[in-house]
Design a protein around this nucleic acid. Structure first.
Lengths: 110, 110
DNA sequence: TTACTCTATCGCAATATTACGATTAATAGC
DNA sequence: GCTATTAATCGTAATATTGCGATAGAGTAA
């Protein structure tokens, strides 16, 4: 109890859930939007941009990196983050397939 | 601590996160996929289809209903669930806008 | 009414997530 | 070496999520 039973779902379902979970927090949404907007890489600016403490931002970035959606380059004392384009596109394919499902027949009830 | 600081994010970011959070569990992904596949409405079959206990399925359905992605019709002793098409399309618009962001300029680092 | 079926809700235990202060590690500049 | 700057990690508190047994509620059928 308390832990998700991943083993009873298939790989595709688990992958969709993993991607969705990382988007399930507004801070990570905001981080990604900022990385898209500032097309050059962004470092510690994220802490100023988003109103959360540095350890919290660092933790969110870690999750984004673990899923491969963001990559970070060390540049002196600071770290430069940006969108991992190829992986973002892979994610987009997976999520789009899920979101664009169609109801082949119209419903008769409801 | 321990609670998401929604107030520091804008409505769009919070809405994306809300939609994403509901997709952030494979059981809810599986429920939605099944509802799409069985284009007629589905009732307690979900409990058999997915390997979780009835209270657990009921709870996941509740969350999907609260977000408006699923609607339920009482039919005798059972309840008939189906995708709420209009709301699903609204959600798709919101999520697509987020997923289809573009990097206007290519990155120089990373 | 009684018995049965199906779904929702309650209550709890286990686990996960969020946030941040304090600290550590790594680099840059002197 | 020392100091300043930046980011990662540790540790912990607060809250949220997941799952299910037990129970309640609502409808059907006899």
């Amino acid at each position: 109890m308390g832990l998700t039973k991943n083993e009873i779902f298939n790989d595709q379902q688990n992958q969709i859930a993993l991607f969705a979970k990382v988007f399930g927090h507004p801070a990570r949404v905001a981080i990604l939007q900022h990385l898209f907007k500032i097309n050059a890489c962004v470092c510690g600016d994220l802490v100023n941009e988003i109103g959360l403490a540095q350890p919290t931002i660092s933790q969110h970035l870690k999750e984004l990196k673990q899923l491969g959606l963001v990559k970070g380059n060390v540049e002196g004392t600071s770290v430069c983050y940006c969108i991992h384009e190829e992986n973002w596109n892979i994610m987009k394919t997976v999520m789009s397939e899920f979101l664009n499902q169609d109801l082949t027949h119209k419903q008769e009830c409801c």
